[in-house]
Design a protein around this nucleic acid. Structure first.
Lengths: 462, 462
DNA sequence: CAATTTGTTGGTAAACATTTG
DNA sequence: ACAAATGTTTACCAACAAATT
């Protein structure tokens, strides 16, 4: 490419050569960061190739590499060998989805969990405080959980197909906390974790915070494609994989048993660490005919299985169980100590009591019925595609067309009184042409409110 | 140095040239890691200078730099310009101090907090479950704490000299959790944080996990020396500073008010982010005559103030308060969401009730009396130096001589029935010739047990 | 399928900064 | 005060690898 062609094929970004100070690579990176956060470079914009920019700025091109790399680590841009470097879809904003309610808005965004069942929890809470051993819950002992709590936990997970002993389970403060512990314990900054093309947005943010790079892998209706994973593993060094086999968030895809085994073979071969988030186990095991087992037991020595009780039992009591192989035990308990010291024994005790008394199962049945009703309501507004996705999912994944500006779409709907999230928030890497909305069914105050919300949405999309 | 002098002045480490594979720097780093973890290279050993090793291996010396750097980031070695590179004091083991009790051992190691007061907590716990708004505590709302809980928190911290509003306080799951949140929110891997020469060992481990480098700064009996901090700030890029002004752990040093102001000036000048861990506020404010204020209000826009209730009120209820300036608000709430989603509202509610009912103050008075007694007992065995350190500290810092092998010392004492920790565990950077033991006074089951433990210790040291 | 474009990686060289003697 | 030893930083070059055309 001739040096003087800049005017004919203008570069999308022309940093001011005079603004560069030494060290160049840092200076250039912060210029880029500014221009992205100021909105001067929109998400999706292709940046000049390293060599071209180097030519323009009269620097060696690996100096540009380093600047780009700094911004990539911060999640501002992403690079694809062969095609170029692009501004990341979510460069300018955080995609974390929180429960912070905005007044007078119907929440189809955050996925809560039919809090109507919490009266049962209150009752049990009141009973729990009368235990004779209450004071044992108030000291620093048993940082990974009290033995009888672990026993109840194992008992609970038995029906999901999990079998483990006291030494290989830990109780932590909710599933998100478990993910944080797992990442901190088992990965280093710069490591790579394979994920589905669309994955849990709070995991994306968490990985960003820990400077772990996500490698999106294509999938089909049965889950991630083993060949695609294999391909990526051979290409780049991949250290781990994050999966939600029992019901992917946001796509609602359930992984078939065959697919689990095929993927496990690839994971085993490349020695990846598997993080299996089974938060939807309660909606899947025993309901789905094809369901056989979580992936954990296919790869026990290289997996962390996470089972949170926020969705299945109660969201305010912060409890999740982590199950792991012997090889990971020490690192995980170390990380739990570093991040939490210990989990509140009291929260865990209430959950334990709920499990042992059978109330937890009552709650689960109730939630399943509510999920069924909510899905029935949804299908009145938007037809469910047969055999695609989880039938009882707490959210749905709605393909949309012709709404290209994700932010605009969310804002428009907010103005009409509903909160939903655009598929952009769930993209672990590059942009795709397909667009969806994730519709939470379990967060409205009533089914009437859900109907109103879905009505508004349907009207808007038509 | 002539190339052939290796035999005359043998290098402390001669990696096998043939074992090196490409890429050299990674291969060399893992050789070094192995030799350290196998105990082949003992802590404190001086490694060959980069240039010398490069000569020996026939590589460019910056390749060695990179290998050393990899190991340094992992906390295996540390380097001092001008003097050389050394194996880190705690390279081979984790220094995390946990409450995992070993049977039949008197615990003078882990600092608990006189759990005798937990009967008061039990009572309040039982009352709390009868609140009419109990179900409000069981959902996903208010991730940083419910407003009335925050009000109580501010109320509590008022007496420590903290004034803030609802938007600048968050409730998290204990002080360690707050530290994790602060590091995740405000620092990046590779950042540097200044600390006292001896500092909280769990903070050292946490920083290691986040790949944050600690820069030890010398101090005197009034705390860290401002000139030393200034010097380091000018030399290397320092991003933050961690301080426990009201009672350093492990040295028990309280910072004088003048020193706080001098340090604040340096911190302001270099725009460091201050993490102020004020877990001992309850033992200091109102007791120490010189006490005026925490450092937070000297630097409100660049500080995070952390006030845990584990030591002062109850350790099993995992609650700590974080107070911060507007500039840090967004990042911190983001990190809280990423790591915890939310804190258990129930734990926070019990603490709130304890504060509002005045029981918390009762507990604190009780703990202060216990601390006084424990310190009186200690002084019968080991004389307290006048005017050095906190008079009511829950632990003491005992200078020892002639016991050079830290691990051996800890093991010897363990065999005699007591658990104590050697000063090596608390070193944030290089080794020092001075040696101490940290003696926890608040973790034995009774004062008689404390006396027995101190007796054994005294006999052993003589 | 070969050539081209584009990003990645690993080793090198030079200038720099700090500590020690 | 200065020289030597030692670690640090930044830029560059060359070989490589993947994707596109």
């Amino acid at each position: 490419m001739p040096v003087n062609s800049f005017d004919n094929y203008p570069m999308s970004w022309k940093p001011d050569k005079n603004a560069l100070k030494r060290p160049f690579y840092k200076s250039l990176a912060s210029l880029l960061e500014q221009d992205i956060t100021n909105g001067f470079l929109a998400p999706g914009t292709k940046l000049p190739p390293q060599r071209e920019l180097a030519d323009f700025l009269d620097l060696n091109f690996t100096t540009i590499t380093r600047s780009y790399k700094m911004c990539e680590v911060k999640g501002l841009i992403y690079a694809v060998t062969g095609s170029g470097t692009f501004v990341a879809p979510n460069a300018t904003r955080s995609i974390t989805i929180s429960a912070d309610k905005t007044a007078n808005s119907i929440d189809l965004g955050f996925v809560a969990s039919f809090e109507q069942t919490n009266d049962i929890v209150s009752e049990t809470l009141q009973k729990t405080v009368n235990k004779s051993y209450l004071e044992q819950l108030l000291n620093y002992n048993d940082p990974t959980g009290i033995p009888h709590q672990k026993t109840a936990a194992l008992n609970w997970m038995e029906s999901f197909g999990i079998h483990a002993d006291q030494e290989h389970i830990a109780i932590v403060s909710g599933a998100q906390n478990a993910l944080a512990v797992a990442l901190a314990a088992l990965f280093e900054p710069g490591n790579r974790i394979a994920t589905d093309l669309y994955t849990y947005s709070n995991f994306i943010e968490l990985a960003k915070m820990f400077h772990i790079k996500l490698v999106p892998i294509h999938g089909d209706q049965f889950g991630m494609l083993p060949d695609e994973l294999e391909k990526q593993c051979c290409q780049t060094n991949i250290d781990g994989i994050f999966l939600m086999p029992s019901c992917n968030n946001p796509t609602t895809i359930m992984m078939s048993d065959i697919r689990k085994q095929e993927l496990a073979a690839v994971i085993r071969k490349h020695r990846l660490i598997l993080i299996e988030d089974d938060i939807h186990a309660f909606l899947t095991a025993g309901i789905i005919s094809d369901y056989r087992q979580p992936m954990f037991h296919l790869l026990p020595e290289q997996s962390v299985y996470i089972c949170g009780t926020s969705k299945s039992i109660c969201s305010g009591l912060r409890v999740a169980y982590m199950v792991y192989g012997e090889t990971l035990r020490e690192k995980i308990s170390q990380a739990i100590f570093n991040i939490n010291v210990k989990t509140s024994s009291f929260d865990a005790e209430v959950i334990t009591e709920l499990i042992l008394s059978g109330k937890a199962h009552e709650i689960v049945s109730h939630k399943k019925r509510l999920a069924q009703t909510a899905n029935d309501i949804y299908s009145e507004y938007f037809p469910l595609r047969k055999d695609v996705g989880h039938p009882l999912s707490l959210y749905r994944w709605l393909p949309i067309k012709g709404h290209n500006d994700a932010l605009q779409l969310e804002t428009d709907l907010k103005r009409r009184g509903i909160r939903v999230f655009h598929s952009n928030r769930f993209q672990s890497g590059q942009t795709t042409p397909d667009m969806y909305l994730r519709i939470a069914l379990s967060s409205t105050n009533s089914f009437d409110e859900l109907k109103i919300g879905l009505g508004i949405l349907k009207q808007y999309l038509n």
